[in-house]
């Protein structure tokens, strides 16, 4: 469960978030939709306790991001788009294991979990090789495994498919489905309507740090009587300039 309450955040003279509110019940996948610079990454960074909000707060599975940041972090996994952020001189297993240990898992649990993840992500061939020479796709799988090694009840995805080809994006989509089936609470940020429409039941559309819409995709479409893409363009256009 994720409850976001009145988040505001400024960087020097840029107001990145101007009061963001939404709620994701346990086991739901929420799409966080917005153009570049809308404030998606900032929102997710605040939820992951990497940034402190100027005001407002958020509660993840009962833990307040301001009061118990350590517990919040232990309860969430986060997957970033772009560079994988792995350590080239460590093996895939060591990379994943490092995050397991930092999330206070026991050695046996980590081993078991890595075996399981190696299996479902089909990394058996290279799990004990150093990451440095991996292909983009291999690295991506390792970073997925790393983000979820501690089996967190909450997953945050920050535009994880940006810059990926179709088949690599599909790996991410399958992984998201996996999370859904396991009953995890998920926020999936994207600037692509099509992707969000396919993957999420409910969406938040943010623009320039404000929530423009917060509803299920079905009811948004019904209410405005148009498809998501047109709706988004229209909403953003109204707000614009």
């Amino acid at each position: 469960m994720i409850e976001v309450k009145g988040l505001k955040k400024s960087f020097k003279d840029v107001e990145a978030l101007r009061g963001i509110d939404f709620f994701v019940p346990r086991g739901e996948v929420l799409g966080l939709l917005g153009e570049n610079g809308a404030g998606k990454t900032t929102t997710l960074r605040i939820l992951a306790t990497m940034l402190k909000p100027n005001s407002g707060t958020a509660i993840l599975n009962g833990y307040d991001i301001l009061e118990q940041p350590h517990m919040v972090r232990k309860n969430l996994g986060i997957l970033f788009g772009g560079e994988s952020g792995l350590y080239d001189r460590l093996t895939a297993r060591e990379n994943i294991c490092y995050y397991g240990e930092l999330n206070d898992m026991s050695k046996e649990d980590i081993e078991k979990r890595i075996d399981y993840l190696t299996d479902i992500l089909e990394m058996g061939e290279y799990i004990d090789r150093r990451v440095g020479k991996f292909s983009k796709g291999m690295k991506q799988k390792v970073s997925i495994a790393r983000s979820i090694v501690h089996n967190p009840p909450i997953m945050l995805f920050d535009e994880p498919t940006s810059g990926l080809d179709v088949s690599a994006a599909r790996v991410i989509h399958r992984f998201l489905d996996e999370c859904r089936q396991e009953g995890k609470t998920v926020i999936f940020s994207s600037h692509s309507m099509g992707e969000v429409e396919k993957l999420c039941e409910k969406i938040v559309i943010i623009h320039k740090g404000e929530v423009l819409a917060y509803d299920s995709i079905e009811s948004l479409k019904a209410k405005h009587n148009m498809d998501l893409e047109n709706l988004f363009v229209e909403m953003v256009g109204e707000r614009g300039e």
Partner: peptide, 14 residues
């Protein structure tokens, strides 16, 4: 540089 700082800071470690 290798973009590993954010994931690292989002682990359980302070």
């Amino acid at each position: 540089e290798r973009m590993s700082l954010e994931p690292l800071l989002s682990t359980g470690a302070g």
